[in-house]
Design a protein around this nucleic acid. Structure first.
Lengths: 127, 127, 127, 127
DNA sequence: GTGGTCTAGACCACC
DNA sequence: GTGGTCTAGACCACG
C-alpha cells in the first residue's frame, strides 16, 4: 500500500478500511490484523495505526477489547450507514463540480451513463 | 483566493482559469489581468503566474503577444473541447469512486438525482 | 572554467559538453559528473546545470535516469551528427564573414592554409 | 542599424565602418557623414560616435580636420593593412575552433568548399 | 547520494 | 506598463 505523503497517514488508513468494510472485504464481526502487524507491514509508526483505529472505534465501526484482535462491528446498520455517508460525500462533491461548470443534471447523467457503458457497464460478478 | 499548499500553485491557477473559461466568466478574446497584477493580488511570485500562463498558452487556451495583455482564445472549439475534457475527468473520477464502492450505476444515478432535488434542482438563471 | 557574462551560463555549459563529446573527452556511455558536483566546482547554481542537462537530454545527447549519474549517449550516430552540426555552424559563420569582406574562396583558403602552416600544421598525435 | 546591447556601441560602430572601408563602400578619401548626423540617425549619444571616430583617427583609418567632414584615409596601404588584419582575426578564430574540434585542415577546407558551392560559389558581381 | 520540481527575485526587450 | 528569461535556493522522490 502506498500513501500520499501530503495527507495524514492515519486518515488514509481509515479511508482504506472504511472502503474495505463497505465492499465487504472485511465481513461484519471479522477480526482485523493487529496494530503491531499493520505497523510493520505498512512500515508506519504504531501510533499512527493506533490513531486510525481509535477514531474508527469512536465511530463504532470497529470493536476493540483487551487481549483479542479488534474486529469489524457486527451491526449491519452501522456499515450501511457508513456506506450512505461515503456515497453522500462522493455525490455531493461531484454535484458541486457540476454546478461549478454549469452542467445541468440531465446532461450530467447522460454523460455518466455514456461513460459507464464505455467501461463495460455493471458487472454481474463483484471483484 | 486561497491555495492548497499540497498542490503546485501554478496548477491551481490553471484550474481556476480553465473553469472560468468554461463558465464564460472570461469571454473568448477577452483580456486577462496582467501577470504582475495577478501576482500582486494573489500574493504569489510573478513567475508562478508566468508558468501557469505559459502552459495555457501551449494548450492554445490563451493567446499571448509581447506588450499586450494575454487574452482568451477566440476559438470556440477549443473552449468547448476544454469543457468536454474537464467534464470527462470529473465523470471518470466519480465513476472510479463508485466502482470502488461497488455501487451500481442505477443506484448512483438515483442517489445523484435525489441529492440534486434536495439542492433545489437546476436553476433557470445562471448565477 | 570561466563564463562570459553576456551569454546564459546554461548555454555555455552545453557548448562545453558538446565540444567535449565531439572531442571524445567523454566516451559514449560514460558517466558525467553529477549536477551538484558540477555546480560546486563551477560555482554555479545546481539549477543552472540542471537546465543545461535537461536540454542535452532532450537533444538525446545524454541519458538521464533517476538515482544514477547521467551519461553520454551510446548512440555513435548522434555524436557524429552533433559533430557535423557544430562543424556546419562554424563553417557557415566563417563563410558569412568572408562574404561580408568580399573575400573570394580561393584567397580565403590560401590564407587559411598559410595560417595553418604558421601554426605548425596538423599534428599526428591528438592532445 | 541595430546594436547588440552586450557590446559597446562605439566598438560596433568601428566594426561597421572598418568593414565598409574594406568593402570599398566608402572609397579612399571619401567624406563620412558628420558625427552629429550619425548620432541622430542611429539614435546614439554623439559622444559615442565621437569615441569611435577618435579611435579610427588614431588608427589612421580616417582623417579629421576642422570645419570639414572627416574622410576615409587615401592611403591605400592602410586600407589594405586593415583588410589583412580583419582577415587574420577571422582566420585565427576559425582555426582555433577547428583545432578545438580536432578537425584537420584538409577536411576543413573540403567542408568549406562544399559549403561555398552550396551557396552558389563566388559571384562575379559584387553586391 | 542521485535526478527532478517549485517558487522566488532580478533583469531584459519592447512600446 | 506589457510579456519573457535567467539564476537562485529550498524542497521532494527514490535508493
Amino acid at each position: 500500500m502506498e500513501f500520499d505523503k501530503r495527507i495524514p497517514i492515519y486518515q488514509q488508513l481509515q479511508d482504506y478500511f472504511k472502503l474495505a468494510f463497505v465492499r465487504s472485504e472485511y465481513q461484519p464481526g471479522q477480526s482485523l490484523p493487529s496494530r503491531r502487524e499493520l505497523a510493520l507491514s505498512l512500515n508506519v509508526n504504531p501510533n499512527t495505526v493506533q490513531r486510525a483505529f481509535k477514531e474508527m472505534e469512536e465511530a463504532k465501526l470497529i470493536i476493540t477489547e483487551p487481549n483479542v484482535p479488534s474486529r469489524v462491528t457486527d451491526d449491519l446498520h452501522i456499515i450501511h450507514q457508513l456506506r450512505e455517508q461515503l456515497l453522500h460525500e462522493m455525490v455531493a462533491d461531484f454535484h458541486t463540480q457540476l454546478q461549478d461548470m454549469n452542467v445541468n443534471m440531465e446532461d450530467a447523467i447522460r454523460y455518466l451513463e455514456k461513460y459507464h457503458r464505455s467501461k463495460g457497464g455493471d458487472k454481474d460478478v463483484i471483484n
